[in-house]
Simulated assay, not measured.
Amino acid sequence: MLTVDFDRFPVEPGMSVLDVGCGQGRHSYEALRRGGDVTAFDLNEDDLAEVSTMFGAMDAEGQVPASGAYRTVAGDARQMPFDDASFDRVIASEVLEHIVDDESAMAEIARVTKPGGLVAVTVPRYWPEKICWMLSTPYHEVEGGHVRINKGSDLTKRLERQGLEAFGTHHAHALHSPYWWLKCAVGVDNDTNPAVKAYHRLLVWDMMKAPALTRTAEKALNPVMGKSFVVYLRKPAQA
Rank of each mutant, 00 (worst) to 15 (best):
L2I: 05
D7F: 06
L18R: 06
G21K: 11
G25C: 10
L32V: 04
N44F: 14
A49W: 12
E50A: 15
V51I: 06
M58D: 00
M58E: 05
M58V: 07
A60W: 12
G62Y: 13
V64F: 06
Y70A: 01
T72Y: 12
A74H: 07
Q79I: 08
F82Y: 05
D88Y: 15
H98P: 00
H98A: 01
M106L: 09
E108G: 04
R111T: 01
G117E: 00
V121P: 06
T122Y: 03
T122C: 05
C132E: 05
C132G: 02
W133D: 01
L135P: 00
T137G: 09
E141Q: 15
E143M: 15
E143S: 15
E143Y: 15
R148S: 08
T156G: 11
L159H: 00
R161G: 08
G168M: 14
T169N: 07
L175P: 02
H176L: 03
Y179M: 03
C184I: 10
V186Q: 02
G187L: 15
G187R: 13
T192R: 10
Y199S: 07
L203C: 02
V204K: 13
T214F: 07
T216C: 12
L221D: 03
P223S: 11
V231D: 03
P236N: 06
Q238H: 14
Q238Y: 15
A239Y: 14
